[in-house]
Design a protein around this nucleic acid. Structure first.
Lengths: 331, 331
DNA sequence: GTGAAAGCGCTAACAT
DNA sequence: ATGTTAGCGCTTTCAC
């Protein structure tokens, strides 16, 4: 910047004014400074400025997602960017790779680089490690899962209600022997979805002895194996509710392999690309990732503008999309 | 940091040494400083340090992808992080949303925040706007597409060879009337794939009059409409080669709608989630996003270590995966 | 309309 | 083993 000032024959502050579009500079000077800046290929250093600037905002927010390879994360990212771009704020995304040990490191990487706020999907048991940072004033918005160990804004799907709807859908199609396939119960959303499933069974008066619960399914392969074992066992169900998208894919693969995909009903939680092109189409309870992202981004900016906001949890409704697999009657 | 020094009763430089793990500090002092830092919830400001630090590295690289909702981007992101984490470097990803106007803004956002290097998928006609930055020493590695208007490292798929292989596959299954569905010819990869297709026709001695070329297909819906129009026309093909994943999905949808998915052969460029579960399974020429990401990350670090490296283009081979749709014989 | 001086949080270079 | 001083590139404050 000093070089630009020298080349343009003006003071350094004048260059600063031109670069930042501040008033009180004559048109001729602006012109001269801009040419000098262009000649030197001047790139202002945002962080150097922020060192002194009041408020110390970096116009950057961090987005931490469980796994960048999950389409849910992609949709979320895009939605957050949609909102942020209007505020001139850059969104930088980083991935946890579904590794709890990575979580704190990734958060730290963002914090050391002074992001203005953090939107995060968490996988650790507790987020108490963020307490100090939160007290320090960094806006935190959790998406997909509510945090444990601290009070903060969260934007989540209606997990229990969605699971209940999926379950009700199966019951209405005549099923009583339903298998529940879920992720690790440490995960809050997994617990919520299971709760929705169980409560709906209760409302329908179906004894829990009629259902099979399989939890701890962390990936597609494990889910596939679990379903194959299920049908090799003594009490195969007539329907499956799979509570997460990878689990759903695994279950579908297993049913296909067993030749049961037209016989056993399947409803999955979370939508899947191309689900409508399968035969039968995959009935799912879809989450609205775009809406979740929009709400989270709006909330973080609201909190940036008014740090005193009370922590709030926003629930985004899910939607059941019947496509065939969920409408199969028990044989 | 000064507060920590005061609280610990030491000089500010000693705190700096402790925080950065530099030697020549007594164990007792380290202990005292660390406690003080913890008490004050001290977070070092990476950027402030970088202002003075020699080399001025921020231990951050930027990753710019076309669209975060494309699974290819997700796989790429994960691969880059895999490598970067070993160097203690954070990877921040941002999306272009397939919007050329967004490209320069997004690059600028990274540059202003002083990333050490940039891995980017570009969509603008020319990347000449990056010339100055490149001369300035910022390592640039292009992925998926080679840049235009400047010489830089690139990691790309074997687009022409892969397209030729797909075409050969169809020809070997007896097809002569093949339709080519491609993206906008402004996109370099689109041109390469079309070239591979045409050259293979030439080798097989198939006159270009036997084939239909449809270009400028930018999304699923347009592709779907184009295929429907194709079969409403006078000279429907017996096979389709679709040169991009969204185009493939659109084509598949159209064939399904027309009831032709078991009649017309289809091979797509770039793999698709669940392609194996469709009926028939989707035959594709798969790109190795993980390999591309790994190579790009390794290259950017190599260039960070030795800026004098000659620009090089790395070609990652594609792989034809037969799953059914590409093995349909002409009727 | 413009510029000089001080200082943001930190590290380099050189004390001690 | 520890502290002091200068200064990174910028913005602030205040003077002109």
């Amino acid at each position: 910047m000093r070089d630009v000032a020298t080349l343009a024959g003006v003071g350094i502050k004048t260059v600063s004014r031109v670069i930042n579009g501040e008033p009180h500079v004559s048109a001729a000077t602006i012109e001269r400074v801009q040419r000098a800046a262009a000649d030197l290929n001047f790139q202002p250093d945002l962080h150097a400025g922020n060192l002194r600037r009041t408020g110390r905002r970096t116009a950057t927010i961090g987005l931490l997602v469980g796994s960048v390879s999950n389409p849910f994360s992609g949709a979320l990212h895009r939605a957050v960017e949609d909102i942020a771009v209007h505020r001139g704020v850059a969104v930088f995304a980083s991935s946890l790779d579904d590794d709890p040990d990575h979580e704190e490191r990734a958060v730290d990487a963002f914090l050391k680089r002074r992001v203005d706020g953090l939107i995060l999907t968490t996988i650790k048991r507790s987020q108490a490690y963020l307490l100090a940072e939160q007290k320090h004033g960094t806006p935190l918005v959790f998406v997909d899962r509510e945090p444990t160990g601290l009070e903060a804004d969260a934007v989540v799907s209606s997990n229990a209600a969605g699971a209940a709807e999926a379950t009700r859908h199966l019951i209405q199609h005549g099923h009583r022997h339903i298998a529940y396939l879920g992720d690790r119960p440490e995960i809050q959303t997994a617990r919520e979805r299971k709760r929705g499933f169980m409560e709906e069974l209760g409302r329908a008066g179906i004894p829990t002895g009629d259902v099979t619960i399989i939890e701890g399914l962390t990936d597609e392969a494990r889910s596939e194996a679990a379903v194959e074992a299920l049908f090799a066992g003594p009490t195969p169900p007539t329907a499956i509710f799979s509570a997460q998208n990878l689990i759903t894919v695994g279950a579908y693969r297993a049913l296909r392999r067993l030749g049961l995909h037209h016989t056993i009903a399947l409803v999955g939680f979370d939508d899947i690309e191309l689900a409508d092109l399968l035969e039968p189409g995959l009935t799912v309870v879809a989450q609205d990732a775009a809406r979740i992202g929009h709400l989270a981004a709006k909330r973080i900016f609201a909190r940036l503008d008014d740090p005193a906001l009370e922590p709030e949890t926003f629930v985004v409704p899910t939607e059941l999309i019947p496509r065939g697999s969920g409408e199969i009657a028990p044989s």
